[in-house]
Simulated assay, not measured.
Amino acid sequence: MYAKLKKNPNNEELEIKHSEMKKQLRKTILRAKQEYFEKCVEDNQNETEALWRYVQNSSKKETQITSIRTKENRVVEDEQEISDIFNDYFSGIGERYANEITEPAEFREEKIHSQESFFLFPTDSEEIEKVISSLKSRKSTGHDGIRSEVLKQVKHEISEPIAYLVNNCFEKACFPDILKIGTIKPLHKGEDKTQVNNNRPVTLISNVAKIFEKFEWLLL
């Protein structure tokens, strides 16, 4: 069909058929991927390590910036140098904005101390599954590369160990260091993509960390 359309680009009937076939092909591929994923989850549901390994391997890699242009109009293509340039630029944004803030004429800080205490009830797998289901379906991921859609697919298999971890964190008043890591990504604002100042920093955290945070927010 593609070959026919290429030979007859102005044929509307061929164009419509080609468009319909493309849609059908996408649906077929998506369905095949879904069935393959479900089979892998079923085969590994009793093997936690193998299941997590498959979850990580199923995550897509995001498109990387291949080149940028410096103030001296020099084109940089080395990945490490590009990262260093963005890091230097983004790390100074806060200070630049802070210098533009006008301090109020009078400011008085008031501290409020509560004499009341509260108790956090432990969670269970059912609550964790609800939290996972509430995650927004986005392609963005943190440093671990695990998408929210993947977590939703395996929520029945991972809810119990995550519930154990969440309860442990609240009991010991700690948060896993691995979940504190944020990945800073440059988000293009407009105009020339190769200019560093045409990008703004966005911090992406792990979707697993969002489960902990969402549950904490619900309790508080």
Rank of each mutant, 00 (worst) to 15 (best):
F107W: 00
K172L: 13
N99G: 15
A163S: 15
V196F: 13
T28R: 10
G142I: 01
S117D: 13
L220V: 10
C169A: 14
S206D: 10
E216P: 00
T48R: 11
S91H: 10
S59P: 04
K152T: 02
R26F: 05
S133M: 11
D78I: 04
I132S: 03
Q24V: 01
L187R: 08
N87M: 05
I146K: 02
W52A: 03
A173T: 09
V75P: 02
E216Y: 06
K180F: 07
V75Y: 00
A50F: 09
N99F: 01
I68V: 13
E106P: 00
L165D: 07
H143I: 15
E116K: 14
A173Q: 14
I181T: 12
K139G: 07
H18R: 08
E47Q: 12
A3I: 10
A163F: 10
S140F: 02
K155Y: 04
S125W: 00
Q56I: 06
F107E: 15
R31A: 14
L219H: 05
K185Y: 09
T66I: 03
Y97Q: 13
E109R: 11
S133E: 14
P9W: 13
Q45S: 08
K22G: 06
V150N: 06
F119P: 01
V75R: 12
R53L: 05
E213V: 14
R31F: 13
I29G: 00
C169M: 04
R138C: 05
T183L: 11
I65E: 01
T28H: 06
W217S: 11
I181V: 15
Y36E: 12
L219W: 00
P176G: 01
T194E: 10
S83V: 11
Q80K: 15
K214Y: 12
S59T: 05
V131Q: 01
S137A: 09
